[in-house]
Each structure stands twice: as C-alpha cells, then as structure tokens.
C-alpha cells in the first residue's frame, strides 16, 4: 500500500498513542506482581501486564517499519514529553479499586478500538488488531466480572468502586483526546475516530455499571483530562520512566 506523507504521519500519531498507552499501563499493572489483594489477582494483573507490554512491542515494531527507531530505543530512551499516552494510564496503581476501575474503563475502550481496527485499511495494524482483540476480550471479561462482584460485595467494596468510578471518569475521557490527524485517519479508513469509539464505550460501561446499582457521571467532554496525546503529562510519568530506564540507561548500547 502506497502511503502519502500525511497518511504516514497520521498512522505514526495513532500508533504512538496506542503503543504508549499499552506500555505505560502494562508497566503499572506489573507493579501489582507480588502485591495483589489475593494471589489470584496478583497473577491476573501480571498476566495482563505481559499482554499489554507485548502489544506495545508489536505496535512499536510497526512504527519501526514506518521509519522510527527500534522498539527498545523508542520505549527506553524517550522523556515524558515525547510520550503520547493519556494521563489516566500514568497514574500510580493506588489502591486495588483504583487499578481495577482503570482496567475496566481502559480495556473496554480498547476492545472497541481493536475490534474496529481489525478492519482498518492499514493492513499491518488490522492484522495485529485481529490478534489483540482475542487477548483483550479476556481482559474485559476479567474487569467486568470483578466490577460486578465488588459492586455487589459489601458496603465498603461498593463505596470504593463507586468512588473510583467518580474519580476515574474524567481521566478515562482523556483516552479519547483527539490528535491532529483525526480527520486523515477517518478519511483514509485507518480508524473510525475517537468520538465513535467513545460513544460506544460510554454505552457499554454505563450498562455494566448501572446493572449493579452504581452510577456513572454524565458524558461531558469539557471535564476530560486531556494533554497526554500532545506530550503534556502530569507529574506521574517522568518518575515512572526514570525508574523504567534505570538499568537500560547504564549503557544503552550494551546487550542486556
């Protein structure tokens, strides 16, 4: 497929957003390894972390084919302002309810994204999306089960999940922050666009949340925590990256 310069730029923008989201959230999820509330959840979060980081690697590999650096270089040598992830994924893991609700909001958005990308006009991405959606299906199954379980557990668990929904909702809207190439992506049929994904996402998570007697805030984009897609991040990302690259930075030319 012959791509115009503008199409390449648009695809790179989309791929960076998605890959950075996957890497950073995968990294955060991996922080539960050894510390989960029960062993089974410890294991589940480790497993999802591996999927996400593995998906990031494959998305960076497409970027590499489009002329960007090797995946390790992309992931382990950039500063925070060069990352295009949304702010939500950068936040520390916090308590389990925060991480669980983030996993619920994010993975439900992601499943919709990759379901639609499976028919993207950009074949390399469509092929990956078909593989990823099979993995993410289990992540949403996991998230939805736990949200329902804890929303119907006891007063404390119900309150915690509701509070984390309220706290996370505007952050979650930042997942759908549009980039500068939104129109190009839609026109080229590479991607259906953030707005369409968000609308489907809102309907999906609303139904689940309300089915267990909790509430979801109204969809108001003026409250969205944006900036991440443009490299403007809160103070959470750089310390995480400094830790992530600590060993790699000893000698980036060495084989580790």
């Amino acid at each position: 497929m012959n791509l115009t310069d503008n199409q390449v730029a648009a695809l790179k923008d989309l791929l960076y957003k998605m890959a950075d989201d996957q890497l950073i959230l995968g990294h955060r999820n991996s922080e539960w390894t050894g510390l989960g509330p029960i062993l089974e959840e410890d294991i589940a979060f480790s497993s999802m972390a591996q999927d996400k980081i593995g998906q990031a690697y494959q998305l960076y590999s497409i970027l590499n084919e489009l002329g960007e650096s090797e995946p390790d270089t992309i992931a382990f040598t950039r500063n925070a302002n060069q990352f295009h992830c949304c702010d939500y994924v950068c936040h520390p893991i916090g308590q389990y309810d925060f991480s669980l609700v983030r996993h619920f909001f994010f993975d439900n958005a992601e499943l919709i994204k990759f379901n639609t990308l499976a028919s993207s006009a950009f074949d390399p991405l469509a092929m990956l999306a078909r593989k990823f959606k099979g993995e993410i299906k289990y992540h949403t199954m996991h998230a939805n089960t736990w949200i329902k379980q804890l929303a119907q557990g006891n007063e404390e668990s119900k309150t915690r999940i509701q509070n984390s929904i309220n706290e996370g909702f505007n952050l979650a809207l930042g997942i759908f922050e549009q980039g500068t190439f939104e129109k190009e992506l839609v026109d080229s049929k590479f991607y259906i666009g953030e707005e369409a994904v968000m609308n489907e996402w809102y309907a999906t998570v609303k139904e689940i949340i309300e089915s267990v007697g909790l509430t979801i805030p109204a969809l108001d984009l003026s409250n969205a925590v944006n900036g991440g897609r443009k490299g403007q991040h809160s103070s959470h990302l750089q310390p995480m990256l400094t830790e992530m690259t600590e060993v790699y930075a000893i000698d980036p030319s060495a084989d580790w």
Binding site: S30, T33, G36, S46, Q50, I53, D72, M240, V247, W256
Partner: peptide, 29 residues
C-alpha cells in the same frame, strides 16, 4: 525479583521477568 520488573532493561527481559515472577506467585497459590 519483583522490584526489578519495573527496571528491567528492554522488552525481552521485562516480559520474561514479569512472567517468571508471576509463575512464582502461581506456585505459591
């Protein structure tokens, strides 16, 4: 070992170390 997951150098080591430590927790279970 878990403290090194977040600092593992490169994708290959990062993925392998998470999987390894996950196995250990699974053994505990």
């Amino acid at each position: 070992e878990g403290t090194w997951i977040t600092r593992a150098p490169g994708f290959r080591r990062k993925l392998a170390l998470i999987a390894k430590v996950q196995d250990e927790v699974g053994h505990g279970q």
